[in-house]
């Protein structure tokens, strides 16, 4: 009787241990994936994320040169975005001064030589994205936009003279894609000049449009 009890107990024990053991191995097997992945889990490599804080672009427009008509303006710009609000912007622009009313009326007079009529400017500005927004083209297609203020200083070369020039303006930028933008800018350039005798402040309005790319 005792033997029999022992036997049952032992077989049960061994059975139980067998079941437990097999269960354990099954569990161990389950933890392993069916297919071993070839790749190791990757840490985030910052170098793989493309940062687009710089913007390079070209613009065309009209520059009203005080006393010298309005003329075709073209140029380039480079922008560095410090934050979502603040950016640095550098511009170069080229135009050619026309004739003064005096030259037109008097006929055969020239106030400036052709070389001196070349108008060149550069400036470095700080910009502020005042009103970021969205423009809705259709029901489900929207462009991100920015209405920004920009101002700074630089130099203007005109009339055989280089003058310190302050400028301020507003711009409206439409991002066609994340990396491509179109902008419309109205800007006032101010400098002192004495090309027509006495020194005075010259106000020059620029209206331009340009295309730029973020990189």
């Amino acid at each position: 009787m005792e033997n029999r009890t022992k036997h049952i107990f032992l077989t049960r024990l061994s059975l139980a241990s067998l079941v437990m053991f097999s269960g354990l191995t099954a569990a161990q097997e389950d933890e392993r994936p069916l297919i071993e992945p070839d790749v190791q889990p990757q840490k985030v490599d910052e170098a793989l994320i493309d940062t687009e804080n710089f913007e390079i672009g070209a613009f065309v427009g009209i520059l009203n040169i005080e006393d010298f008509e309005s003329s075709f303006l073209w140029g380039g710009k480079l922008t560095y975005h410090l934050s979502e609000r603040v950016f640095f912007e550098a511009n170069v622009g080229f135009a050619e001064g026309g004739e003064t009313s005096f030259e037109k009326l008097a006929g055969n007079v020239q106030v400036l030589s052709d070389d001196d009529r070349d108008y060149r400017y550069y400036n470095v500005n700080i910009g502020f994205n005042l009103l970021p927004g969205e423009a809705f083209l259709t029901e489900d297609y929207a462009f991100n936009t920015n209405f920004y203020l920009v101002g700074g200083a630089g130099a203007t070369e005109f009339g055989g003279d280089t003058r310190f020039t302050a400028n301020a303006g507003v711009g409206y930028q439409v991002l066609l894609t994340d990396s491509l933008a179109v902008q419309f800018v109205v800007r006032e350039h101010l400098y002192r000049i004495d090309v027509l005798g006495e020194e005075k402040t010259s106000m020059n309005t620029e209206v331009s449009t340009g295309l730029s790319v973020f990189f």
Binding site: I49, D50, T51, N53, H81, L82, S83, E84, D178
Partner: peptide, 11 residues
């Protein structure tokens, strides 16, 4: 998935 970055924002 991190695609690109502009100032303090990630696409």
């Amino acid at each position: 998935t991190l695609l690109k970055r502009k100032t303090a924002w990630l696409k």
